[in-house]
């Protein structure tokens, strides 16, 4: 597991999530995403993956890309990956955030 923190930028209008929400499962080829609001205004990510060595960086980028694309700030994300492809990671992050807004 590792933790990264992304500082917020001033150029984009950000949306805050208001509650804790989950999406996805712990089945193989899936990823379980939990999102929760934080007061720092940053994007914080805790990632665990069965393919951390090979794909940890890629998974992280897919998650962060989706969060930024949706314009979310002040969010802590806990992700447990079971070998999900990019489309699944993106879909689960989007679902979790929409459930948390």
């Amino acid at each position: 597991m590792f933790l990264i923190i992304v500082e917020k930028s001033n150029e984009v209008i950000y949306i805050k999530i208001t509650k804790i929400a989950k999406a996805g499962t712990l089945e193989s080829n899936d990823i379980l995403i939990m999102v929760m609001p934080n007061d720092s205004g940053n994007i914080e990510l805790e990632l665990e993956s069965i393919v951390m060595q090979q794909f940890g960086d890629v998974i992280e980028q897919v998650i962060l890309h989706k969060v930024k694309e949706m314009g979310i700030e002040g969010i802590t994300i806990k992700a447990q990956d079971k070998g999900a492809l990019d489309y699944t990671i993106g879909a689960r992050v989007e679902t979790a955030i929409k459930r948390a807004i």
């Binding site: 990019d86 489309y87 993106g90 679902t95 929409k98």
Partner: peptide, 15 residues
Amino acid sequence: KDSARILVRDAIKYI
């Protein structure tokens, strides 16, 4: 239902 809708949408785009 919400989760599956988004997943199927992205599967059609990606696969």
